[in-house]
Amino acid sequence: MSELTTDREIDRSKMQVSDEVAIEISGMNKWYGSFHVLRDINLTVNQGERIVIAGPSGSGKSTLIRCLNALEEHQQGKIVVDGIELTSDLKNIDKIRSEVGMCFQHFNLFPHLSILENCTLAPIWVRKTPRKEAEETAMHFLEKVKIPEQADKYPGQLSGGQQQRVAIARSLCMRPRIMLFDEPTSALDPEMIKEVLDTMIELAEEGMTMLCVTHEMGFARQVANRVIFMDAGQIVEQNEPEEFFNNPKSERTKLFLSQILGH
């Protein structure tokens, strides 16, 4: 699993971390009923960072990034996304959601709409973009994820990898400043994982701020500037990828890495 995701040279000219803060989480706690799922999370993400969140299943990594656009509610602490604090105010939540793109494990495309309509829905209704302009934007991003020829098909007619690329294009059509990926390749065949990761790498090359929950350690190594390891709802270790993989500090991280990279 540790082999590289891509053998081409990654263009790092635009992959720069700025001083501007994109996301700030401080003292955040979350419970599911009486189960304490996220414990005292403190995390600052700067504009342009590419963060990979790893950890065993049930460690709360998906819950963490789902809290960032209020798909899950946190009960304690403070989350500030793009300068807006996440409260129960619906207007703030909708504003943040339109600035933060998200890709899901199961794509969550809308099966009753064509690919093009999937991509233009939110720009037309949330951003009030004229239809024609929205369609041009959509085609631009579909070309970017290399499936413009599928624009008139329906999600059910596409392969998993293609669907995930459409999902990425759909998020990009809202011109988000931050992208969240929740295990984007976990539901895909090995052949299709690569095409999705390629798309994500291109996105990183353009300087997008990204938070990815993924088990693709090759991607973490090559693209991320920071790897966060979570266990039991806490951040156990975070470091630069080189240091994280070659020289893990925590015993828990060592165990996890030996299991995931061991074969």
């Binding site: 959601r97 199961h106 809308f110």
Partner: peptide
């Protein structure tokens, strides 16, 4: 599937838009 609600929510559609369009 709940994914449809989450997909609509994550794009910033409000409740009525999500209901009507998705």
């Amino acid at each position: 599937p709940t994914g449809q609600y989450e997909g609509a929510d994550s794009l910033g559609l409000n409740y009525w838009q999500a209901q009507r369009l998705v």
